[in-house]
Every structure is written in C-alpha cells, then in structure tokens.
Design a protein around this nucleic acid. Sequence first.
RNA 1: GGGCAAGUGGCGGAAUUGGUAUACGCGUUAGUCUUAGGAACUAAUGUCGCAAGACUUGGGGGUUCGAGUCCCCCCUUGCCCACCA
Length: 716
Amino acid sequence: MKEYDHKKIEKKWQDTWEKKGIYHAQDKSKKPKYYALIEFPYPSGDGLHVGHPRPYIGMDVISRKRRLQGFNVLYPIGWDAFGLPTENYAIKTGKDPRVVTKKNSDTFRRQIKSLGISFDWSREVNTTDPKYYKWTQWIFLQFFKKGLAYKAKMKINWCPKDKIGLANEEVVDGKCERCGTVVEQREKEQWMLAITKYAERLDKDLDGVDYLPQIKLGQRNWIGRKEGAEIEFDNIKIFTTRPDTIFGVTFVAIAGDTDRFTGRYVTNPATKEKIPVWEAQYVMGDVGTGAIMGVPADDERDKAFAEKYKLPIIENYPKAGFEDYGKKVTRFKLRDWVFSRQRYWGEPIPVIHCESCGIVPVPEKDLPVELPKVKNYQPTDSGESPLANIAKWVNVKCPKCKGPAKRETDTMPNWAGSSWYYLRYADPKNNKEFASQKNLKYFTPVDWYNGGNEHTTLHLLYSRFWHKFLFDQGLVPTNEPYMKRTSHGMILGEGGVKMSKSLGNVINPDDIVKIYGADTLRLYEMFIGPFDQSAAWSTESIIGSRRFLERVWNLQYKVEKNKKYTEFKIEKTIKKVTEDIETMKFNTAISALMIFINDLGGVDSVSKDVYKKFLQILSPFAPHMTEELWTILGEKKSINLSAWPTFDENLIKDEEIKIVVQVNGKVRAFMSVQAGDSEEYIKAEVLKKADILKYIEGKNVKKIIYVPNRLINIVL
RNA sequence: GGGCAAGUGGCGGAAUUGGUAUACGCGUUAGUCUUAGGAACUAAUGUCGCAAGACUUGGGGGUUCGAGUCCCCCCUUGCCCACCA
C-alpha cells in the first residue's frame, strides 16, 4: 500500500496541467463558453494569507465543474497593481514601484499556483503594464471626447506637514495617518467622471441581473434614487421628500459653517407668510439643493434647531398634495467620481494643457503616455504629483497648434484599471484594440463574478458605469458586464479576530500546503463554513479534511473491477454535490462526500464505477489527488476532461420510509411505511402501535395530522 | 443615527425553507493495536437526572397540531455609510 504523498502528487500534476495547457480557454470552440471571474488581487508585499484564496477556490470549484459539464471555461487572473501601499513603500525606501510590483506579483503567482487553481495563466494581465494601461488611457479619452470627463474644483484632504493630498482612507479621526497632523480641506482642480449621467440606468438595470439581494440593495442605497419635490421659497430652491408638510414650514435653512440668521425673509408659497432664512451647520451643501424647508413639528433635527433658536413650531397644520407647490424631481445620492490623484503610481491622465488651445487630448497614436522614472516618489510641495518635477516629461508641444504646452501630471485612481479588466481577459495580447469585437462577442458578459462585500458599491458600480459607457459607444456587445454576482466572507484569525500583521495571527498558505497539501487546504477552506459569511481559521481543525482525503486514498485498494454496482447512495451524493455547488453551499457538499465515505465503513470492496463517480464529484475540491487516483484506475485522459456524472432519480427513492410519530407535537415513536401506503391506512396503523397506545389510552384523539413521507402527529 | 449581515453544544457549523434540533468536522472520554504516541481504528459525547423523564437554538411575548425557521418588542456582535432633507 502506497501512502498518500501530497508533495509528490501535487507537484507532478501542476506541472503536467501547465505543460498541456488544459485550463486554457479557447478563443474558438464548439463548446458553449463559460466566463467565471474573481476580483484580481492587489499584490501586496506581505504575500498571500489564507483569506486570499477562499474566493479563488470557490470559483475554481465552479469552473472545474463547468469543464466537466462540457463548457469552454474562461477563468482568468491578473494583478491590480497600482495603488498607495506600493507607492508609500517606494517613498520610504526609494525603490522603483515597478521592481516592487514585479517581485510581489511573482510571489503571489508562485503561491497561487501551488494551490492548483485552474486559472488560465496565459491571459494574465497587469494594470501597471504600459501595454495594458494604454487602453485604460484610451477609454479615458473616449470619456473626455463625449464630455463625461471634466475638471472641477473639489475639496481634498490636505496634510500641511507632509504637504500631500490624502485619500479618505489615509485620514484617521481627522488626522494624517502618517504624521498625526490635523488634516485641512483644500480646494483643488480635479478630474471628474460624470457617473451621475448614468445613475438612472445603473439603478434600473439592476432588475435584469442576478446579483445577491443584499448586493443589489447596496448598489441601490449607494445610488440613492429618491423621489421628491423641488419648491421655491422666492429665490431659494429647496428639495424635500415631504412636500405635503409645507404648511408646517416655519423657516428655511441653507448650508453654513455656523448657525446664524441671515437677516432675510422669504415667502412660504403655501401659507404666503414671511419666514426667516437661516444658515445651519446641519444642512449639507452638497446634498439636494443645499437648502431645506424647516418643519419642526415633523423632523427631529428641524425641531432641535427651532427650539435652540426660538423659532416657531406649528403642531397641527393641513397636509398638502404631493406636487401642489413644487415640481416632482428625482434625486440621486450618487456624485460624480473624483478621478484624479496627485500621486506617482497610477496611470497618467493622457491630456496636454496648451496656452492657446486649452485641454488637448493626447493623440491615440501616442498612447500609452508612459510613467517616466523619477528619483523621488514624494508629491511636490504644492501638492502636485512627483511627475510635475520632471520638466523634460512635462514640457511638450501642443498636438494641435505645436505651441508650448504642458502635460497633465495627475494620475488616475486605482479603480481605473479594475473598471474594465474583465474585458481585456477576452483578448489580452491585442495591441490594436482593448479587445477584439469577435472575442468580446464570444466571451462576454461575465457569467459569474464573485468578490468581496467591500466592493459591492464602489468597484462594482464603477465598472458597470464604464461598461455602459462602452456599450453606448458600440464597443462592447452587452449593456451589463456581469450576469451574476455573489460574495464571499473573510477568513478571520483563530478566535474570530481579524487576521493582521500587527496581531501576529496571519496564516501563510505555504505552511499549510507544505504540511497538509493543497488539496487539504482547499477542502478545509470550502468546509470551514458558509461561503458568504466570515469564518474563523482553526489550524487544529484542518486535520479532519486531511483524514477524509486519506480515507478516499486508501479506498483504491478495495476497488473491484467486476463488482456489481450496489452502492446506490452514490446517486444521492451526486445529486447533493451537484446542487450544492451551484448555490455555493460547498460546506454541505463536502459533508455529503464525507457521509458517503463514512457509510461505506469497513466494506471489503467497492465497485470501480462507483469509486470513479465519487472521484469525479470530489475532483473540483481536491483536483490533484483525484487526478492521481483516476490515473491509477487506468484512465488515460485527465479527470478534468471526463464528463460530470449524472444521477438516477429512481435509485434515490427509498422503498421503505421512516416517519416520525408525534403526540401533541412531541416525538414519541417511529414508524416504517411503504412508498405506496394510503393516508387512511397509515392513520389507522399508527393508533395500533403499542408505544403509542400508552400515550393515548383513555384520551380523546381530536385529530391526526399527516405529512406525507415525513411525520404523523396525534392531537389529543 | 441609517443600511446590511449574524446570534444554535467546549469550538467551526447543519437543519429538506413550518415537520425527528445539534448532520459533517474539530476537540474530549473510553477501548483496540500486548514498548510508546501529538499516528490509526472502534465506540460514546447538548444540559440536568441513578432512572423514568424533563429542559434546550441571545432574552421576552404571540400565531400554529407543530417554531431555530413566521409576527411583535428588546439585547449583543461584525461590516458598510454616517447630520442624506
């Protein structure tokens, strides 16, 4: 008997699969396509921890099952590599972010490959590759040409000590994350993308996609569609969702830094009375029209304000009709997207500022505008990107008039590259288009996209916006990018706390793979709990998954080629695993596989047919070991090229059914019935049972409730 | 303050969606393997009780023959957004 040697087996099959390219999606195929997608990772310097692969394994199970079901599967991966951590590391160490990114993504790639995920590595993309961001810039120019990219003055977080603009996540309690200085607000010209132009469609088109309900809700809340009315109080326009309360209005308040009376009065259009206009802190300048009507009787904040400043409160007033005094409007909470960063490590915004022509887009033939090398990655003292210091790069001729001009030095946020990467996978090496129409027509839309809850609003919304824009330009074949969206929960450290370097509870998958093997790690991560909920890591519990695999391994020595097929429980197991994978109930699918093996117990032999079917339905979870066993059984072709087993419903049905007998809702006995027994017969039989008689003797049977195949309840 | 998710044994969790609560796994206990075991296998394992039995899904009420599941009130935890008119 050979022992289960995961090291040998896993290395061998990973090499073989890679050599044969069996996970490569075909651009042309007679098979139907299936596009499975995970959010491509940010290759951080810390390497992979066990939380990263959870979604990869989950979608790998789906992808592997789809291949066995006869699909030409596209399951790609790449690197979302622009971003702050790498840049801050570069500022600190002076190392070139390109070099750091290369090193980090090499580590990630090696680690992910060791898990046997069936990614199509031939389609790997990297957002920081000029060949990739050429097209990110190109898409930006399409936005610009349609007037959807524009410049506007915006407030930004500014650290006066570091002289640097800060992202919201770098501001902690109003202070700079790095030096602790109180952050100021500064006005700065920023590039904006007009996502609000698509607000209505982004909301409405959610009706046509298969997202988890809480994901749709998250998107809808973020877009914040709201029906209300715009009402004019003389020259002040306010927005309200409650125009019916207009008779209760005793003041108008506009956004202000401090609470104060402006000295002005306006007319309430309903009562014709003069009411005061106040500036109030609690009114937000960028919400609605930046002005509200104060109804102290109906709104708690209005009431607090009125009480504080002794403004009148009208308790009982007549209700108005919804649109009697204003016009119906639809408001969205969604704002236009601030699209520029004064940072180095991002895609340069491809425009040129000319003294006489204004803003001129870089001609498409000159794309990409490559990031030049710099000596210092620190933003300039004036808060501009470090690119502003490179005179040779900044000073250019205007493409239109050939006069003196300057390059834009702002870069794009790291949401840019991730807004369209799933399109690039369809045709990753194309240098004439971001992807050919032919390949886009074949592969898109994405059939199933799984990602983190934290991206439910921003990333998902941004990429839907880009996609709709590209659709309007006739550049992609569908209105929506993703047909189905699910999410996974985080993996927490032991005891349910967050895994973090500072707590020292980070688990590196390399260690687990070394000791237990990739198949055990995969199985454990799928078994740990419901896929969409967070789960606490427990190194102690992994052994259970390993023991199960060893039992499956040892079963090979009990296979009998000519044994008559009697293990009908395999049919039930196939059904359960087939169905549970589709709803991502991986934990119960694995439980069913374990139950099947447990039920075999110490049998002397198992038929080869059944063992093969079992290996096939286990293969998405433990691809290496099942491939090895498949070969040992004499199969010449990969288990990955076999056909997903079907099940016979007739073999699943039990002839004899055990039902529960309750008296007054309490379980008192069990009873066996035949599949064909009538209700009357069963009801009569149950009253004859000795262990039931003792409960009903001398009492009145009021009624008997019978649930077919399930239970019988005698009510006294 | 708002939105979302969740609360079941010592632990991770299951429950056919209103029908045997605690599947599966970890841990624990006992036994087998006649050196050992942080190996493997077998069995037991919600709580109380010698037992018959009773009790048990964060707490309290309700609907129902029957509630972890549905309704009402309350408590706790996590995530996201936070003065959103």
